[in-house]
Write a protein that binds this DNA or RNA. Structure first.
Length: 234
DNA sequence: AAGTTGGTCAACCGCAGGTGC
DNA sequence: CGCACCTGCGGTTGACCAACT
């Protein structure tokens, strides 16, 4: 016997949400919150929807702080960097992009960024001048291996050169975007932030002892200081 | 103008993990 | 400990629209 469905599919509405349904859900949550129970929320809010559907609609669309579209190059870079290092953990990636949802990031990756990354990979594999790797030091961060030219980046000496234990695992090709294994040990949110710090994402610092970004305390948006940009592609 | 193709994105599905009893 | 319930997550689907033929 299979798992019981979360709701009676015959008696719930499916498909696109109407403005009226949006209003009902928004009004209810603004007045009462979710109450920690999505299953009972639809009936309380006067909606003929599955609780999961309500949750999804709220989280991905109705929440007041949601941003849609208009991804910045910084956000592109963060997404690609994290994807390369932690894979398709969209909720983790989205948690580092204020106002973005996992669904939004996932869609954006699948429809746009994935193609850009493939274009980069293709260009790198066909361009003999782009095979350079870092050989002078095992801890220097560089973008040489990723972006063939016109880098909008700091020199390798300007970026993080600390000798954390993780950094010692470097052998070559230390750019996070192009190293599928190096950061594999970084899994938790704090570790992701540490990873981004290592890659030079923070202009104002990351306190590894406190496991937090040094800043104003709000949702952080890292300032890119040493990363390539897609506009540099041919 | 009509049909086809491809891109985008909201929404659904099923599973895994957490929690309370 | 085992079970049931609930939430959260990632993968996938399908409707819609614009560009193209």
């Amino acid at each position: 016997m299979g798992r019981a469905p979360c709701c009676d599919r015959a008696n719930v509405k499916r498909g696109p949400w109407s403005p009226d349904e949006d209003m009902l859900l928004r009004n209810y949550i603004q007045k009462h919150g979710t109450g920690g129970n999505w299953i009972s929320l639809p009936s309380k809010a006067g909606l003929r929807r599955c609780g999961k559907s309500c949750r999804l609609r709220w989280l991905n669309y109705l929440r007041p702080d949601i941003k849609h579209g208009g991804y910045t190059e910084e956000e592109d870079t963060i997404i690609c960097t994290l994807y390369k290092n932690i894979g398709s953990r969209w909720s983790v990636i989205a948690s580092h992009l204020p106002g973005r949802t996992d669904n939004d990031v996932k869609n954006y990756w699948n429809t746009k960024l994935k193609k850009k990354m493939m274009a980069i990979d293709n260009y790198q594999s066909t361009s003999p001048s782009t095979t350079t790797t870092t050989t002078t030091t095992t801890t220097t961060k560089t973008t040489e291996s990723l972006v063939p030219y016109n880098l909008t980046t700091q020199t390798s000496s300007e970026v993080s050169t600390d000798s954390s234990s993780s950094a010692e695992q470097h052998t070559e090709n230390t750019n996070g975007l192009n190293n599928g294994n190096y950061w594999s040990g970084y899994n938790g949110d704090g570790e992701v932030e540490a990873m981004l710090f290592e890659l030079g994402f923070f202009s104002d610092g990351y306190d590894q002892t406190q496991d937090q970004v040094m800043g104003d305390g709000g949702p952080w948006l890292p300032t890119l200081t040493n990363l390539w940009t897609f506009s540099d592609l041919p």
